[in-house]
Design a protein around this nucleic acid. Structure first.
Length: 468
RNA sequence: GGUGGGUUGGCCGAGAGGCGAGGCAACGGACUGCAAAUCCGUGUACACGGGUUCAAAUCCCGUACCCACCUCCA
């Protein structure tokens, strides 16, 4: 495999070699389950899902860990607003998130660790940092523990920033910090916070800081050094910088590649700031199928900023319909991994997951396949369809993947068969009318079928119907 | 102030020194009773100003505008 990936830390595309031969280890920062997932959230998931599928296709076993942050300030605040227990709120949003991932055919991770389930690991890491002189309990009796930024000379290396150039947040509460840039590893419980949101620690009851969870969980499941750490661009600083600092200060090698996906914005604004809830995944799925949304996301490179609009999503759906139509013409063509993927497709994905170029290859094969269908060259058409489906499958976009069908698959099949039988009579009448050149009668029959929401199309092999 | 990124045809969206990615839309043609789909064809696109080069959307310098992050707000 000659996969090359863009590493944010070195700002260059370089060859990917797993630390452990034959196994790739990937850690992706999941979400803080505080509100309904929106389009921006799933971009990260889909992007790294493509990475995972490509690594697997390259013959690697992939240990894919994607965490869920289920305790944090926002969760406490939003749960209080909604009149729920914080853990109830987190669990509710977590279920929404899982449903959104499933709707977009994002493969379940190898494991999805929760922050609240790893407090002992975090405490151990914090104690180690204190022993090594890189962390300290606050002197103000708050029970907080901070990472000592000044004790770690490499601090800022991931994002190429010098500590002295950093602007301390104006409204930051310095509390017991030695330096305003020090960040919390552990937060002592405040009297206003629910008791259920605290855990015992050597520094008194409290809860974990945001960054420490990822260091602890990545270390636990992937080892002290692992291959890829991914997340959204916004996480580079402070989150990833802090993760790297604390992990390395604890003596770990940590991530060898840092991958960051760009934003999807609306009207130039971050989605999290955008008004309303029209862009939550459940809302978008009322208007578009999951596979269409996934196509839309994959059609842009993961490092490119995307300006979301329903118009461009509509365009993407049209483009995808073209692919689907071709595959419907050539039934029975299964993905075939024994057959090599087109070189251009492989080259595209190997080049930092250039999905737009990969998509161009798919469209090119669809075009050739359509030519073969027109020429009634069944063998060529079938081969093209196999290749198209194989490529789509690598991107998680194979329309025939059972993951899209859901539980109603069997019922759908039976309904389809029933409609087929019912329509057969009407289509025979229409064929007779056409043969007699009674086009008014033929069109009347077609109009009736159309009114029922079914589109009839004449093809060289006779009429075909599809749900409009 | 610091750090990173962006500006490409009607639209979306790739590319990163030389042959016009791909898609959507539009127009012309083929096919069709008509449609639909499909195929073939049609576009002198790279924010602006300089420069380097035989050759620049791509490299260099400058300018403008935009975006993200800068320590518990993705």
């Amino acid at each position: 495999m000659t996969l090359r990936l863009y590493d944010t830390a070195t700002r260059e595309v370089r060859p990917f070699e797993p630390v452990r031969p034959g196994r790739a280890s990937v850690y992706v920062c999941g979400l803080t389950v505080q509100s309904e997932p929106h389009v921006g959230h799933v971009r990260s998931a889909v992007s790294f899902d493509v990475l995972r599928r490509w690594l697997q296709h390259g013959g690697l076993e992939v240990d894919f860990i994607r965490n869920v942050t289920d305790i944090d300030d926002k969760i406490l605040a939003k749960a209080a607003d909604a009149g729920r227990h914080w853990y109830e709120h987190a669990a509710l949003m977590h279920r929404e998130l899982t449903a959104a991932y499933a709707a977009l055919n994002v493969l379940p991770p190898t494991y999805e660790p929760l922050a609240t389930g790893h407090v002992p690991e975090m405490l151990a890491l914090i104690e180690r940092l204190i022993e090594r002189g890189h962390a300290y309990p606050a002197a103000d009796g708050s029970g907080d523990v901070y990472f000592d930024v000044r004790s770690w000379p490499a601090y800022g290396e991931l994002t190429r920033q010098r500590v002295d150039d950093m602007e301390a947040a104006e409204d930051a509460d310095p509390r017991g910090k030695r330096d305003p840039r020090d960040f919390a590893l552990w937060k002592g419980r405040k009297p206003t916070e629910p008791e259920t949101a605290s855990w015992p620690s050597p520094w008194g009851p409290g809860r974990p800081g945001w960054h420490i969870e990822c260091s602890a969980m990545a270390g636990k499941y992937l080892g002290e050094t692992f291959d890829v750490h991914g997340g959204g661009v916004d996480l580079r600083f402070p989150h990833h910088e802090n993760e790297q600092a604390q992990s390395r200060a604890a003596g770990h090698g940590f991530a060898r590649f840092w991958l960051h996906n760009a934003w999807i914005t609306t009207a130039g604004e971050k989605m999290s700031k955008s008004l309303g809830n029209s862009l939550t995944i459940p809302a978008v799925l009322e208007r578009f199928r999951g596979i269409e949304l996934r196509y839309y996301v994959v059609a842009a490179h993961y490092r490119s900023h995307v300006e979301f609009s329903f118009e461009s999503l509509e365009e993407a759906a049209s483009a995808f319909a073209r692919i689907e139509w071709f595959l419907e013409q050539v039934q029975g063509a299964e993905p075939d991994y024994a057959d090599d993927l087109p070189d251009a497709f492989v080259a595209a994905l190997d080049n930092d997951l250039a999905t737009p170029a990969a998509m161009a290859v798919i469209h090119e094969h669809v075009r050739q396949g359509n030519v073969a269908v027109s020429a009634r060259d069944g063998e060529a058409a079938s081969r093209a369809a196999c290749q198209v489906r194989t490529m789509l499958d690598v991107l998680g976009l194979d329309p025939a993947d059972p993951a899209w069908g859901g539980a109603s698959g069997a019922d759908d099949e039976r309904l389809r068969a029933a409609v087929d039988v019912l329509l057969a009579g009407l289509l025979e009448q229409r064929a007779a009318a056409r043969a007699a050149k009674d086009f008014a009668a033929a069109d009347a029959i077609r109009d009736r079928i159309t009114a029922a929401g079914i589109e009839v199309t004449d093809t060289p092999d006779g009429p075909k119907w599809s749900i409009a």
